[in-house]
C-alpha cells in the first residue's frame, strides 16, 4: 500500500493512501482509506451517515491529522509546514453557508482567503470580482450574507473558496436545502468550473448528474470505486451500504449525453 509511483507529468489533484484515524475518544472513523482523484475529475463521495465522510474531508486540508497514512494535494503532502499552501489548494465548502460566511459583507467574505494569504489592493478586488462572477453573484458584493436567500448564500460560499484558486473543490452536501431551481443553478455553475471536484453527498441523482465517477465510503473504508451509473445500478452493492435511490428514480434511464471528461 506504500509504493509512491515515480511522479508522472501532472500529479493527481488528490492522493490519499492508507489513511486511518481514531478520534481522541477512541472512536475509530477511518480504517485505511485509499483514494486518488486525477486533475479535472469530478468525483462523488457517497456513503451512509456515520461512514466517516466528514472525517475524511477534514483530513484533506489538515484540520484533522495525526493518524496513520498520507494525504497529498497536487503532490504536496498535507503536513504542518505546508498548511498555508494546502489550505489555499483545498477549497472546502461546508454544508451550512452560515458557518462558511462569517464576514459582514459578501465582498469581504470572498476576499478573506486571498487576503489571509497576503493579497491586497487592485489584485484582490479583481480576484473577488472574478470569483463572484463565476457564481453569478457579482451584484450582491456589498450585501450582508444573512440578507441573501439560502441558494445565494450557498453560491457565495462556493465563491469564497474559488477566490483562492483551489486545486480541488470539496463540497459537503452541496444540494442540501436547495429548491430545485437553485439546485440546477448550482449544478450549472459546478459544471462550468475548470477545477477538480470532490462532492460529498446523499443526493444520488445529483451525484449521477454531475460526477462521472463515484466512490462509496462505508465503515471507514472505500467499499467501491467506479462509474457512478454502474455503482448505482448495482442493487446489491447499494443495499449493502445503506444507499437508496429516491422513489421512481432509475439510474439507467437518464441520458448522460455529455460525459464531460
Amino acid at each position: 500500500m506504500t509504493p509512491s509511483p515515480a511522479a508522472p507529468a501532472a500529479p493527481a489533484s488528490l492522493e490519499v493512501s492508507g489513511l486511518a484515524y481514531a478520534y481522541p475518544d477512541g472512536h475509530q472513523a477511518l480504517f485505511g482509506v485509499d483514494l486518488t482523484v486525477g486533475q479535472g475529475e469530478r468525483v462523488a463521495l457517497l456513503g451512509p451517515n456515520g461512514a466517516g465522510k466528514t472525517t475524511l474531508v477534514l483530513h484533506l486540508n489538515g484540520i484533522l491529522g495525526g493518524g496513520v497514512g498520507t494525504v497529498k494535494v497536487a503532490g504536496l503532502p498535507v503536513e504542518k509546514r505546508n498548511f498555508a499552501e494546502i489550505r489555499r489548494r483545498v477549497g472546502i465548502v461546508f454544508q451550512d453557508p452560515d458557518d462558511q460566511l462569517f464576514m459582514p459583507t459578501v465582498r469581504e467574505d470572498v476576499a478573506f482567503g486571498p487576503a489571509a494569504a497576503g493579497m491586497r489592493g487592485a489584485e484582490l478586488e479583481t480576484r473577488v470580482r472574478e470569483a463572484l462572477e463565476q457564481v453569478g453573484m457579482e451584484a450582491f458584493a456589498d450585501r450582508p450574507p444573512h440578507h441573501l436567500s439560502f441558494g445565494q448564500r450557498r453560491r457565495v460560499a462556493v465563491a469564497t473558496v474559488l477566490a483562492m484558486r483551489p486545486e480541488i473543490l470539496v463540497l459537503d452536501e452541496p444540494s442540501s436545502n436547495l429548491d430545485p431551481a437553485s439546485r440546477r443553478e448550482l449544478a450549472d455553475i459546478l459544471r462550468s468550473l475548470d477545477v477538480t471536484v470532490l462532492m460529498v453527498t446523499h443526493d444520488l441523482p445529483y451525484a449521477l448528474e454531475l460526477c462521472p465517477r463515484a466512490v462509496i465510503l462505508s465503515e471507514g473504508v472505500i467499499a467501491a470505486d467506479g462509474r457512478t451509473q454502474d455503482l448505482m445500478c448495482d442493487e446489491e452493492l447499494m443495499r449493502a451500504h445503506r444507499l437508496e435511490l429516491p422513489f421512481g428514480f432509475d439510474p439507467r434511464t437518464p441520458s448522460l449525453a455529455r460525459p464531460s471528461h
Binding site: 461546508f94 458557518d99 469581504e108 478573506f112 497576503g118 484582490l124 483562492m164
Partner: peptide
C-alpha cells in the same frame, strides 16, 4: 473550522 480552512491563522486580514 471554516476560517482555518481558508487560511485563518489568528488575525483577520485587513481588507479595507
Amino acid at each position: 473550522l471554516a476560517m482555518v480552512s481558508r487560511g485563518y491563522a489568528g488575525s483577520m486580514p485587513v481588507i479595507d
